[in-house]
Amino acid sequence: MRPIHATHRGDPIEGGKIVQKVRLQEFNKDYWLYSLSELERNILEAILDHYPVLDPGYQQISRYMEQDATKEPQELLQECMSDRQKENRNFVQKLLMPTSQILSETSENSWSLQLNPDERESLLQILNDIRVGFWLELGSPEGSSPPESANLTPEEESKWALFQFTGFFQSNLLFDPSIHGDPDDENAEYSDEPDDFD
């Protein structure tokens, strides 16, 4: 597993300038409200356009049980994953609709993302499908950046960037002040140094 890289909670950078980061504005038992810049909204759309990346049959129900015993459960698993992907795809369409109540423009260069708890879970699942899928398509790299020797095609470079940004969105969605504390608290312990990868 990967620790959350410090930059995942940082800000996407445009032309060397730091722009507004995805911020949790409010949350309660009914909804989570985030603010996004125009750039972040566009990156999120670019990411979500790829869903789903992983095949519904990507995972196995068991490693060690005999194949005869797992044939039916494996088929059921694949069916469930297909159904879930359909539901998530519908959610992505709903989220990206111009008249979306979930992702809406609040002012110039500012968007709000309002998710109920189930929608938040769906978005986390969608982002992780894309992130894991891109990671596999990039050859399952170990570190936080491609090896220097890697001669990435423009398509792979784009995938790499979206892979990183997907981690950024996941980390921001996962941020829970009731667990992690107030991000505006100057005494909070946040490190700007990247964590080591195992």
Binding site: L54, Y58, Q59, Q60, I61, S62, R63, Y64, M65, P73, L76, L77, C80, M81, R84, L124, Q125, N128, D129, V132
Partner: peptide, 18 residues
């Protein structure tokens, strides 16, 4: 099986074993 399905929805690598 139910739990494995739930974990797979999040794309975690989980299995059930006897």
């Amino acid at each position: 099986e139910f739990y494995v399905h739930q974990l797979h929805q999040y794309r975690l690598h989980a299995t059930l074993e006897k």
